[in-house]
């Protein structure tokens, strides 16, 4: 394979083009995946903020029944895996899953450690730090976002409440969204990109191969046949034509050489005194 001109010319080009296109595909897919993940986290954070704003009045009035109904209704929306409201001690105060109520979560667990890593818990986190991805008990991948419920003047001034003004965070809202649709979209993008990459590869490598074959390898084969004829003492039947300019001079020389040999062999009738007409 590496002894032929075609092998020598095409192997490095094939490796380089194929490898580079695959690297571009992998990097592009990684960038798209990050962008889609970031947008999904943004969407989940906005949804958490919307829930907090919607339930704010019910929380202020300490209307537990209304709060539970709202949380249940939102939790029934397609794609929402769970909604939990934790109090300051980490006890589940409200949840779309009744079995989780009044349970305490480990502050070292993923999703809590972001704020509770140090002795004094952090009161604010960046958007991406609020998010975590895990597989739930039903085997579904979930993107969950923690949103803190901050203490406000209306909270600590309300007659029914006991939150001290110094307490910054009253609890947290944890919302989990299914990643099923996101993963399906990413798989669809990936498949389309694979098809696109394969098409580019076939076009590039195939195009280079076809052009090289047409412009270089076929004329070289013709030239080799001509040289073999001359070497064997045969008289070429016709003027060599349709050679590229670089090979045309060699073909002319070979043809003229064969004419001289034929002339020396004593067949003057076969001698064509003119040179081979050049291709335009």
């Amino acid at each position: 394979m590496f002894k032929t001109l075609a092998g020598r010319a095409l192997v490095p080009v094939g490796i380089a083009v194929t490898g580079f296109v695959i690297v571009c595909f992998l990097l592009l897919y990684s960038v798209i995946k990050n962008v889609v993940n970031r947008d999904t986290v943004g969407y989940a954070t906005n949804l958490a903020d919307t829930i907090l704003k919607s339930t704010r009045y019910a929380m202020l009035k300490s209307d537990r029944e209304m709060l539970a109904t709202m949380i249940q209704n939102i939790g029934q929306q397609k794609g929402v895996e769970h909604i939990r409201v934790f109090n300051k001690k980490g006890i589940v105060h409200l949840s779309t899953r009744p079995e989780e109520l009044n349970r305490q979560v480990d502050k070292k667990a993923e999703g809590c450690i972001g704020c509770h890593a140090g002795a004094i818990p952090s009161a604010s986190l960046g958007r991406m730090e609020q998010a975590r991805i895990f597989t739930n008990g039903e085997g579904r991948e979930v993107l969950a976002v923690m949103a803190p419920i901050y203490n406000e003047p209306e909270c600590f001034n309300a007659p029914c409440h006991i939150h001290p003004p110094a307490q910054k965070v009253l609890g947290t809202l944890d919302i989990g969204l299914s990643r099923e649709m996101l993963l399906n979209s990413l798989a669809s993008i990936r498949n389309q990109m694979i098809v696109f990459t394969v098409m580019i590869l076939v076009l590039t490598v195939g195009g280079v191969t076809a052009l090289l074959r047409r412009s270089v390898f076929l004329p070289l084969q013709k030239l080799r046949r001509l040289a073999e004829q001359v070497e064997a003492g045969e008289h070429p039947e016709a003027h060599p034509s349709h050679f590229p300019r670089e090979l045309d001079r060699i073909a002319q020389s070979l043809y003229n050489l064969s004419q001289k040999d034929y002339s020396a062999a004593g067949d003057p009738a076969a001698i064509d005194k003119g040179t081979v007409p050049k291709d335009s």
């Binding site: 490796i15 380089a16 194929t18 490898g19 580079f20 690297v23 992998l26 990097l27 990684s30």
Partner: peptide, 17 residues
């Protein structure tokens, strides 16, 4: 995790050439 295969592919291509 997201970019391992990209670096691997780049390395294989460069070192093969």
């Amino acid at each position: 995790d997201d970019n391992f295969w990209a670096v691997f592919g780049a390395g294989v291509t460069i070192l093969a050439v």
